[in-house]
Design a protein around this nucleic acid. Structure first.
Lengths: 242, 242
DNA sequence: GCCGCAATTTGATCGCGATCAAGTTCTGCG
DNA sequence: CGCAGAACTTGATCGCGATCAAATTGCGGC
């Protein structure tokens, strides 16, 4: 009975409830676990704009962000595709057959734990608790990737933008930050690359929502939702997937 | 030092090499593990077209496909978005806070293990090996979802189609099936829903590649690649992400 | 604060996929 | 085998985002 691989995100059944006792999403690691990880990992710093690793490099370590934001992306013949914005507490450094499967660069100044893969392997073999927590993190990542695909399937630029702003707001709330205003972690072109739009189209989409008084922006990095009902309508119904 | 959640698929550093000894992707579970799972799970069957569960239902079980193909999708106001086609050996039934996060229906007749979540929890707590295997499966699923997003970021219909056919071929090879011809597991409209196209546009994209002698189709479910070089060009360079 | 460069916005035009509608083929079932 | 309904293909038109280019704004360094 040979089992076989996947055609898609075919996983799951495990989430923060898996252990019966829900953990807050932001507090997956216990103090003991943190101590353990700290012992085997070093702290590294990156300047804004610095490349952390590139697709195809030999993967020797994973990273766990202490502060700052990292952009994970793939370099394509015709420009980059941003696959995610990685925040404080998140793990990144996905590898396949010993090589990184994407590139990563610091969107802001970044401080992170650098965890050698060899050490990580050892830990995982012994520490069942950490396994579970990693599984939970993976499920979150999987859901995020699925959400990204859902977003990209939307036809209208304004809908994609609204879904993205919704996501940022949700994450801000989950992090316990004030959410009256949505903070954009990166510049327009990176957001456009995440949304599958050109910077020009993104700009127009912002303009559309702004002129309809659905959102307003204090500056390039801060957006406020003025008309929640209209906003939801744009995010939900409009711009249908075909 | 509060850690925080994600803005994307922010995971990884773990893959089938994680234990030092690579496992074939299709043989993640040892015989012991299979026996263990078999003991706690029941075998269920679904007829073609039958709904297995729906988004929002209380999640009581995960599934592991023995044979057949399942379509995982989300129901949207304006039509469905297919998030993955799930094959033999894959696990599905992703839940969040006790409810399924997507719907699933049988694309063909399906036989599957049904694994109650309560049992799965117990197993995972005790069986470290299974954890690792689940982590690997999750990483695969995550990569698939990221690939899906990459595909959906492409502008031209023909490029999306070619990337999808490439994926199917890769999976066929991984499963050890002959790959001279690509087998489509589902009908046109499901493929269109996966590609973020209308059935009409998908049909036209097929026509384009066919008339350019890049592919040929024996019938609605079998496609052959005639001109590999041209095919790669369509899949890689053309239809750039913005 | 001022300079220079990069990022963003705006404008005009074009092309591709959506849409709506009408054939055509496939499929299941008596 | 033939029928009925669904799935798929094809056609004509429209709209939105891409594209290319120019104007403007924001930002780092001094």
């Amino acid at each position: 009975m040979p089992a076989t691989p996947i055609a898609g995100p075919a996983i799951y059944a495990v989430d923060p409830w898996v252990r019966g006792i829900p953990k807050a999403r932001h507090q997956l690691l216990s103090d003991d676990e943190r101590a353990l990880l700290a012992k085997i990992s070093s702290i590294v710093r990156f300047k804004k704009g610095e490349t952390i690793y590139q697709e195809g490099d030999a993967a020797e370590a994973a990273f766990n962000i202490i502060s700052g934001v990292v952009t994970a992306y793939r370099r394509l013949a015709d420009g980059d595709h941003v696959s995610s914005f990685v925040y404080q507490g998140d793990i990144f450094g996905l590898s396949e057959q010993g090589c990184y499967t994407n590139s990563a660069k610091a969107a802001t100044a970044v401080v992170a734990y650098k965890i050698p893969l060899s050490a990580l392997r050892r830990i995982l073999e012994q520490h069942a608790d950490l396994d579970i927590d990693l599984i939970i993190k993976l499920c979150e990542g999987l859901r995020e990737a699925q959400h990204h695909a859902l977003l990209l399937a939307r036809k209208h630029a304004a809908t994609r933008l609204a879904m993205f702003l919704e996501l940022l707001e949700r994450l801000q709330i989950a992090r316990g930050e004030p959410a009256a205003e949505i903070h954009l972690p990166v510049g327009r072109s990176s957001i456009a690359a995440y949304l599958g739009l050109t910077p020009a189209s993104l700009s127009r989409a912002l303009r559309t929502l702004t002129s309809r008084k659905i959102i307003s922006s204090r500056d390039l990095r801060h957006i406020r939702i003025l008309d929640r009902a209209a906003f939801q309508k744009v995010a939900d119904t409009n711009g249908a997937g075909p």
